[in-house]
Design a protein around this nucleic acid. Sequence first.
DNA 1: CGGTATCCGAGATGATACTG
DNA 2: CAGTATCATCTCGGATACCG
Lengths: 119, 119
Amino acid sequence: MENHTAESCAKSRLAIQDTLEVLNGKWKLLILITLQHRPYRFKELAREIGITPRMLSKELQELEEHQLISRTVLQTKPVSVQYAITPHGTTLDEVLGALRNWGMKHRWKIITAPEAVNP
Amino acid sequence: MENHTAESCAKSRLAIQDTLEVLNGKWKLLILITLQHRPYRFKELAREIGITPRMLSKELQELEEHQLISRTVLQTKPVSVQYAITPHGTTLDEVLGALRNWGMKHRWKIITAPEAVNP
DNA sequence: CGGTATCCGAGATGATACTG
DNA sequence: CAGTATCATCTCGGATACCG
């Protein structure tokens, strides 16, 4: 299973670049993992994550373009808008899980990391 | 196993933020997945990935600070420097694998994605 | 070869105010 | 509530040249 030829290495890079292109930005992964919890409304999401409306709007649009989340206008009074993970969005579960697990296991090392050795 | 409380959701966000902090930038994941293949020398890595010396140097330093890769000076003539994954770096295998797999499976959807609906 | 120094533009992000 | 508009800022990353 050690498929580590130079060629497969190049393919892996391309695959990762593609993934990064879809998940780029500081917020997309945080939005996705939050919506994994349950659907959220716009402002609710903004408060939960701590993101400004401008950025949230932009990120949500990009995620929707990539069909990872859905946007639904609810006929409440006043209207509210609900964002939720799509089936295609759930294909990222493995990615999100891996990132979350790594962060949980290695948080201490990150915090302990020698930020500034000596200027 | 559906551990999806509001609290666990917040913890997941923190974990992901920590991970993103370590892997931030456009190149770190590409460097890591390349070094997963085998150790590389500086210029060799630069050529393989297509990154300028300035960025490569910066990214390698940050990765080394986080103990994900090692830097070894080889006493050749002239000297060469070898970069390799560390044991701690291999703990990212799951993350790298997940990102690679997703990219391979969903490349078509990324390319097909409606970039500009209508300007 | 293995870097570092400098310059610079583009894009990402934040703060704030405003609209329907 | 759900966004958008505007402005200021700041970081990222590329190009280029240079050093030991």
